[in-house]
Nucleic acid binder design. Structure first.
Lengths: 152, 152
DNA sequence: GTAGGTGTTCGAGCGCGCTCGAAGTCAAGG
DNA sequence: CCTTGACTTCGAGCGCGCTCGAACACCTAC
């Protein structure tokens, strides 16, 4: 399999695949007579797993650590397991946060739906807002004016 | 409330708060006699909400859109509602993805735990891997060698 | 009066994860 | 033979979301 087909099958771009190889996230691919990368199917599960780590927000440097340990063989299994367990804990935490945020979002949206016609006012529950780090206690109403939003 | 206290209460840095004001995500704060920003508590729920949008992965430009609509008053309520609904759909989708990934992670970790001592081999289920975009069908085993991981 | 602490503006820089373009090589098809 | 197209390497550039430092202003306490 050449890089183009691998790209098609993984949803990555050829550029990205080469980039992953460059940084060591993918093994150095065997080249054919014309010095082109020649993949076999065994790379696919690994790329799939990388994709899942990425989806769950693992930074590349951690994936790299995992990949490196993997390359070192069975002796590193325990460390790899620990790494994944830490990651899982982070993912679970994030998941819980997301669920909490979803509830707030639901409330907010319900507020907008409720005030469908006529004076809308402050949609959704404007209390119980949690800050970035659980630091907000006080709460009145959200401000109505926002600055003259530059195009960024 | 001066910017330092607001920073403490929100978990943001003063730098970040100024940045948010600059780009229009926070309203232009009233300045006191010494031209220092003087906040009242009404900003807190808004910052809290921004934090939640951020947690759920909304890009700043979308928050900006929301903030701008908000600034335009009740007439934009419907559009704001739609915006949040779209966002909610994305968050739900992402949540589902995360949960699926968590299952895979669990399996993998169970595999590492199972092979605690002795020959570890390929920990976790090495089948059923989904690619980045559901494009991988084929699957054998993950590669063992990874390139000489450059420091990136 | 002076030191310390907190604030101000401005613009540059950073870390991440790609993304892209240039210039060249190679093989197959008409 | 010549075109087409997929590949190669290399290095620069980008979009995002901050992050930081410089140089200066101001208030308060000693």
């Amino acid at each position: 399999m050449k890089i183009g087909e691998l790209a098609r099958r993984t949803g990555l771009t050829a550029h990205t695949i080469r980039y992953y190889e460059r940084i060591g996230l993918l093994p150095f691919a065997i080249r054919d007579h014309a010095k082109q990368r020649d993949y076999d199917g065994s790379i696919l599960p690994w790329i799939g797993f990388i994709g899942r780590l990425k989806t769950t927000g693992m930074p590349i440097r951690d994936m790299l650590r995992y990949a490196t340990l993997r390359a070192q063989g069975d002796a590193t299994a325990a460390e790899r397991g620990a790494l994944l367990e830490q990651h899982r804990a982070r993912v679970r935490h994030h998941l819980a946060e997301l669920q909490a945020c979803l509830v707030v979002l639901d409330t907010k949206i319900a507020g907008y739906a409720g005030s469908a016609r006529g004076s809308a006012g402050d949609a959704g529950g404007s209390k119980g807002m949690e800050p970035h780090h659980d630091a907000i206690q006080q709460g009145t109403r959200e401000p109505v004016r926002a600055g003259p939003a530059r195009p960024l």
